[in-house]
Amino acid sequence: MPRLSAAERHTVRFTLNGRAVEAQAEPRMLLTDFLRHELGATGTHVGCEHGVCGACTVEIDGVPARSCLTLAVQADGATIRTVEGLAPEPGRLSVLQEAFRRHHALQCGFCTAGILMSLDSYLRSQPDPSEQDLREFLGGHICRCTGYVPIMAAAMDAAKRLRESPSDV
């Protein structure tokens, strides 16, 4: 790969929610800004820009990661999933999203995209988590509205339903 010059914009290409996308970015552009303002995928939110709050969590090459701690140019060639890619089809929510709605696991909804991306990934690798393990995992996120109680309930409920009907998404 050639050296990308600081002052110019360069084409960055990756797969976003199953589709090939591309846009222009300076080397310094954060992946959050690239997703939101260059690609229009505004479902991923920015809460702190220093990697603590977790609101910007997306899935990069199959694992949850902070998009504010990633440069757009680093993501060139990657496979990225965001909250816009979670629902199985338009008008239908995933099992996890449904559980969030049922348990009132969101209020303002600003941090929710990051938490959903984390949990979606986690429940695929850990279908039967203990409450403590799940809590520790959720500890990578800050929510200021809910007090976490309904989020824990929704996640445990979603895990149970996914175990009972593994073909659901």
Partner: peptide, 13 residues
Amino acid sequence: MKPARFDYIRAGD
């Protein structure tokens, strides 16, 4: 809270 400008190189080796 955005980085200052820098060049970027993806080292191949």
